[in-house]
């Protein structure tokens, strides 16, 4: 099964979409990147990161360093959350 290939996301593409479509478009691009780092938790981490502003998410898609930093933050929050469950 071949992964879907998406063209890079631009601010104008996003602006033309509805809010929930915007998150979907970002999520579809974010997920494979996160999945490469944390296969098992990719769905949850992507879900967490989608709560961030779209403008910041766009920057993260273009900057592996920013993305890695946010993924690390999300992981820590997730572990903390799971520890309190």
């Amino acid at each position: 099964r071949e992964p879907a290939v998406y063209e890079p996301l631009s601010a104008s593409m996003l602006a033309a979409a509805l809010p929930h479509e915007q998150k979907q478009m970002i999520g579809e691009r974010l997920y494979p990147l996160i999945s490469a780092l944390h296969t098992q938790l990719a769905g949850k981490i992507t879900g967490m990161l989608l709560e961030i502003d779209n403008s910041e998410l766009l920057l993260m898609l273009e900057s592996p360093e920013s993305l890695n930093a946010k993924v690390q933050e999300a992981l820590e929050v997730l572990q903390e959350h799971q520890a309190t469950e």
């Binding site: 879907a4 979907q24 579809e28 997920y31 494979p32 769905g43 959350h81």
Partner: peptide
């Protein structure tokens, strides 16, 4: 608590409509 039913965070699945944002104002 058995930790098997953690409702947060909402999980994103590729190709599945994202439902994690129920609090977006129209």
């Amino acid at each position: 608590s058995n930790g098997s039913s953690v409702s947060w965070p909402p999980e994103f699945h590729p190709g599945v409509p994202w439902k994690g944002l129920q609090n977006i104002d129209p």
